[in-house]
Simulated assay, not measured.
Amino acid sequence: MTRALDSLKGLSYKARPFGAAVAALWMSVAAAEVVSGAQIPDGAQKVGENRYRAPGDFEKTLEYYKAVYPSGTFTRRSVVNQPGVKAVHIVNPSGKNFEGLNIYEANDEVRIYVVPLQSVPAPAKSTPAKPTKKSDPKGGKKSR
C-alpha cells in the first residue's frame, strides 16, 4: 500500500514567483561591473569618469542597490528631492576604495556617480629648527 505522500503521481513542480524574482536579481548582481570597489549594475553605460547611466529607472536602480548594499549596513540619505530631480547618497561604511555612491535622476535619465576617496595630503615632514646664533645688538663682538 502506497501512501499519498510517498508518491509523486499527479504532482508537478511550480516555481514560486518570488523565488524566480530573487534568482533573476541575484543573477544580475553577479554579472555586475565593479568600479573602484563599487558595484555598477549590468548594462550601465559609462558617460564620464566615475559616472554611469543606469539601465533602469530610479526605483529599479535603488532596488538593485538595496540588494547589493543593504540599508542596515550602508546608510542612505536623500540629497535632493525637487520636481524633476531626485538624488540619494549611499555611504560606504568601510571607507575603502570609494566614499559612496550618488544615484540621481534628472532629465529622464538615471545616473550613478562613484564618489572617489578624498585624497588626504600627507602631512609635511617638519625638520627641526636649527638654533640661530644670537648676535650682539650693537653689532660688535662679545668681549670676555
Rank of each mutant, 00 (worst) to 15 (best):
A106T: 11
Y13I: 15
N97F: 07
V34A: 03
A4W: 02
A122P: 00
P123H: 00
L5P: 08
S12I: 01
P131G: 05
V80H: 02
V29W: 03
K14C: 00
Y69K: 04
N97Q: 11
G43K: 02
S71H: 10
Y104G: 15
V68Y: 09
G43S: 06
K125P: 07
P131V: 05
M27Q: 13
V29E: 07
Q118G: 08
G139P: 01
V47N: 13
P137G: 10
D108A: 09
L62N: 01
S119C: 01
N107I: 03
N102K: 05
T132L: 11
R53W: 02
P41S: 04
N107S: 14
G56L: 03
G19Q: 15
K125R: 12
K60A: 14
P93S: 00
E33T: 11
S71C: 02
G10E: 09
V88K: 10
E49Q: 15
K46I: 07
E105H: 13
G48I: 02
L5D: 14
V68W: 06
W26P: 10
N92S: 09
A20M: 07
L101N: 09
V68K: 05
F74S: 09
F74N: 10
Q45C: 00
G84H: 10
P131Y: 00
A24I: 06
V29H: 05
S71G: 13
L62F: 03
G95P: 09
F58Q: 00
F58M: 06
L11S: 12
Y65T: 07
V68H: 05
A24N: 07
K142Q: 07
A54P: 01
V79G: 10
A122Q: 11
R51G: 03
F58D: 06
G43R: 03
L62E: 02
V68M: 06
P128K: 12
A23P: 00
V85I: 15
A129Q: 13
A23W: 02
K60E: 15
K14V: 14
S135H: 08
V80Y: 04
S28F: 00
R76C: 02
G56W: 03
P116K: 09
K125H: 06
L117F: 02
K96V: 11
I40M: 03
L8V: 10
A31D: 07
G72K: 13
A106C: 03
P131E: 08
T127E: 14
S135G: 08
K86F: 06
L25T: 09
N102H: 08
P83F: 05
L117H: 03
P70T: 04
G100K: 01
N107M: 14
E109M: 09
K141E: 09
T132A: 13
R51C: 09
G19P: 00
R3K: 13
T2D: 06
A106K: 11
S71A: 14
Y104Q: 14
N92V: 01
N97A: 11
V34S: 04
Y65L: 07
Q118K: 13
